[in-house]
Design a protein around this nucleic acid. Structure first.
Lengths: 192, 192
DNA sequence: CGATTCTTTGAAAACAGTCAATCTGTGTGG
DNA sequence: CCACACAGATTGACTGTTTTCAAAGAATCG
């Protein structure tokens, strides 16, 4: 299980056996059943979470009870609520498992410890953050520029792996459209 | 002019006179007239840009010629196209001045140099990136969850300073709605 | 002051959302 | 193994919001 993370890190930076052992000693391994929460609205998020297997979603629930999915994260991705962590305030979001999942958690202090002990690790984290930021920009662009069908086509083009794993209603929520609209969009685009 | 940047940095980290001089020696100061481009679609972005005064926008132009504003940046903010810079590829975006502006440019290599010579500077940059990421998440949330009028109310609440400086048509573009819709939304919300 | 640009307004059309019913597939318990 | 229940997806009819197009009205700048 930790091997997944090890392999992921090894693919990005060079660390010694001892360093990997050190990291392992500072992490918490957690298994989540489908639908199980990793974070609930109102709780304060304290971790950095790496997904070894499965799929999680981060979403908010509005006054009408509608869910709005901020992000999906599958194996070899990171998740969490940076806003809650940075500002040490209750989260506006929920995170739960879309499938049975395995996550590796680092408390923020342990994570900072690793970053300071291993500069390459820190650099890796910053690189990931940069990429996350670029991905966010791209999603903003799609959200403000595209029609419903363009949003969907862009999504399946960019994240082909997700389409089969994630219920359509959740993809709709991620795209900011209703499940019914997504269904109709799919029907029309299948004609081509 | 460099003083603005100096003050900004001094408010976040402690640097010596010599370090500030060093930074100054590595930057390029550039004045932009209103409407002047800092980056044009197709060019590859090579810098890190700090805005000392004025206001810039980053936007894409679609096939129909419509502009979609990805971000605004005013004094004491950073701008640029991280995607183009990171991947060393032609930009999909344009950046131009909404008002006459003064920007401080660092080539990426000079910027990395400063980051490696001054670890606090590097930490500051990472902190800014984290905040930018959190702001992006928040914008995504608004874009997929809110109606036109909620988007506008959220915007003026979050960026009250922008409302007066930026033409309404640009705010509409930033929110992903038409100028006509924004005009109507404003009329209705003024009734309260 | 004139010209240009931005904003507002109106009417019609397009698009996406809502509500309700039906259909499909999956998994569970009898 | 079948029947049933449940969740998710689809479909239809309708409503409501937003866009589009066009024109008129402010505001701004040289």
């Amino acid at each position: 299980m930790f091997q997944v993370f090890r392999k992921y890190v090894a693919g990005k930076i060079a660390l010694t056996e001892q360093q990997f052992d050190r990291i392992q000693s500072l992490c918490i391994i957690k298994k989540l059943r489908k639908k199980q929460y990793l974070l609930q609205e109102g709780d304060t998020w304290k971790y950095h979470a790496f997904i070894a297997s499965g799929c999680l979603r981060t979403y908010s629930v509005d006054e009408k009870g509608l869910e709005h999915i901020i992000s999906f994260a599958i194996e070899n991705w990171w998740t969490g609520d940076k806003e809650s962590l940075m500002l040490n305030q209750p989260s506006k979001y929920n995170i739960d498992a879309v499938e049975d999942s395995e996550v590796i958690l680092f408390t923020d202090s342990n994570f900072q410890l690793i970053c300071s002990e291993m500069p390459q690790f820190n650099d890796m984290v910053n690189m990931i953050l940069q990429r996350s930021f670029v991905a966010s920009q791209s999603r903003i662009h799609a959200a403000i520029s595209y029609t419903a069908d363009e949003k969907y086509l862009n999504f399946i083009d960019k994240y082909p792996g997700f389409t089969t794993r994630i219920p359509q209603s959740m993809i709709a929520s991620y795209l900011g459209i209703t499940p019914e609209t997504l269904s109709r969009v799919r029907k029309l685009s299948a004609k081509k």
